[in-house]
Design a protein around this nucleic acid. Sequence first.
DNA 1: CAGAATGCTGTAAACGATTACAGAAGTGCA
DNA 2: TGCACTTCTGTAATCGTTTACAGCATTCTG
Lengths: 363, 363
Amino acid sequence: MSVTIREVAREALVSVATVSRVLNGKGPVHADTERRIRKAAKRLHYVPHGGARSLITRKTHTIGVLLPDLYGEFFSEVIRGIDLCARRSGYHVVVSSSHSNRAETESMFRAMRGRVDGLIVLYPGTRPPVRKGNLPDGFPVVLLNAPGSRSFDSLNIDNFGGAFAMVRHLVSLGHRRIAFIGGPAQNRDAVERLRGYREAVRASSADESRSLEVAGDFREWAGYDACRSIRSIRPRPSAIFAANDAMAIGLLCAFREKGIRVPEQYAIAGFDDIPIARYITPPLTSVRVPISALGEQATLRVLKAIEEGPRHEWREETLPTALVIRESCGAGARSEDPPAPRGRGLSSVSESHVGKNRQRLSG
Amino acid sequence: MSVTIREVAREALVSVATVSRVLNGKGPVHADTERRIRKAAKRLHYVPHGGARSLITRKTHTIGVLLPDLYGEFFSEVIRGIDLCARRSGYHVVVSSSHSNRAETESMFRAMRGRVDGLIVLYPGTRPPVRKGNLPDGFPVVLLNAPGSRSFDSLNIDNFGGAFAMVRHLVSLGHRRIAFIGGPAQNRDAVERLRGYREAVRASSADESRSLEVAGDFREWAGYDACRSIRSIRPRPSAIFAANDAMAIGLLCAFREKGIRVPEQYAIAGFDDIPIARYITPPLTSVRVPISALGEQATLRVLKAIEEGPRHEWREETLPTALVIRESCGAGARSEDPPAPRGRGLSSVSESHVGKNRQRLSG
DNA sequence: CAGAATGCTGTAAACGATTACAGAAGTGCA
DNA sequence: TGCACTTCTGTAATCGTTTACAGCATTCTG
């Protein structure tokens, strides 16, 4: 059905070796022969068989990405970062998503063998997503947002630092009772953010009390739901810090329905700085997470591991987050938040803007 | 470096054939032998080499997705639909994005040879994205949002119908002068939406005039920018229909800055119904595009083509869009738009809700 | 003009799996 | 014991490439 190198060779009256040499530009080939071969290849619409090629060259020029679920802007951004970076180096990207448990993840690992040169794995659980034994020894793997491991690279978001900074910011605005809407207990991001919240509260003059912590699951609905529990807290909190933007937005909706004003009656802050955050009313103060940078860094690391081979050294790295201050906490630096970024579209932010926020974080 | 079937065979003191038989569950194998082999495979952490296997079986169990750019929620949703559907049938998904011109697309096509069993191609241009000759004859391809072709399946969104319905809706609200912010002239969606707008205007009692059409490029900034041109139109329009939500939101931002009230002074409508649309203030009336259904349908078709082989018949299909009425046009059916969907998260909508809108479209 | 160097091309062995075919061992039956 | 049959296993071809090696002309060098 599909034409092979052998047929091109026959058509051009040469051996397959010569065809291969021409098509890969290696080895000396007579100009006439080359012309003949190219013409034959074109006439027959020859396209090399990637699988066969990578079998012998032991290079697939592909990196695999394993995601828990493709849903939402977070993953879309990560993939974007990965793809852009990979493509710059001439690599393809295989995405496989929706694996929700460890068994599925491992079966994916197995399925990737021989199809990819390296792997980027995003697993939101709290345990390392893969046992060493399930992969060839020394196979390049970068773990995203997973606990560190001796045998893989790993890349993290500074969830702790971000939450810590946000609480400090709220305290600096005069808030003493800061409620917290948490994420799923098994989610590592959620755990770290909670830890950041608690430590910052403890380290400051704010009230420390378990009654200020409300359960959530990262979904908008949880934020909407949290409205009731939060309003029943006594003494009343003056600020609410949601472990992610989705829940903050849910809460905002609930408040709007009830006619509760933000930031006048409650200050609200989120985490993630998803694109919507800037467009809702009031614009949401949040913690910027360098999502596409995460993908980019991960790709760089995995490419490095591929290149360095067995002498690659595994490393753990944490990417900084940044406070983004908008109006939902009453400290709105509105003018700093350009209404319509000139760049790519909905969610891009100029570097300088990020820089500014980063300063704010460190200062 | 990585263990092969041969080493498992050696370890288990059998031939590779027997190992293969055990691991694939074909052919009769003595229970003792099987046990020995399984143990050896486990001990050595053997993982079959997908590339090698697919070389001989001529099946990769992978479908490729070619996208113009991974950016934004649209693509993320499409991929989600594809991946979910593919995975249900035991297929993997290779995503390759950011190809912006025909040459790049074709080089991608070539790169996919031998790595995928079928292809889903999203190409926003107006010309068919691939010449037949660049693929093995009869290779399964589904074109998304591309002009029909005799040699491929193709799947479209009813951009025309959606725009038409939106204009009709605006007219039914009493608007007679409806401005339109267009998309890129080379973009097929944009062209169809413009066509829908024009024909609906012509078919109704609304004013028909080129001066009501403002140029745009689908990016938020274009909407923001359009504010000035729109305010200079005389006589003044009472409604503005943006060819996508991003531009509608940009415009909304511009209006908010200038203190112009929506929908009191201008009604605004968008297209795509991106998740943000419901959360901005005022919630945006838009046209719902069945994005993940698009991905799902595409996958079903490509899988069908793979299964049917050479006797598969190419078909063109158009997926319906649906009006989603919110407050930005003053006809807000607010209560019908649940503030926080209980389902998956930010952008999911209950089926019944979609159904309701679809009725509205047809009625 | 011998011998080396160079330029071009073909042969054949990989790569890691699957599978048709054949062969060996065991069983049942006459 | 001989034959047919079943059950298990091994040999070797195959998939579509790349590439080490060898071989043949031709040209250069001394």
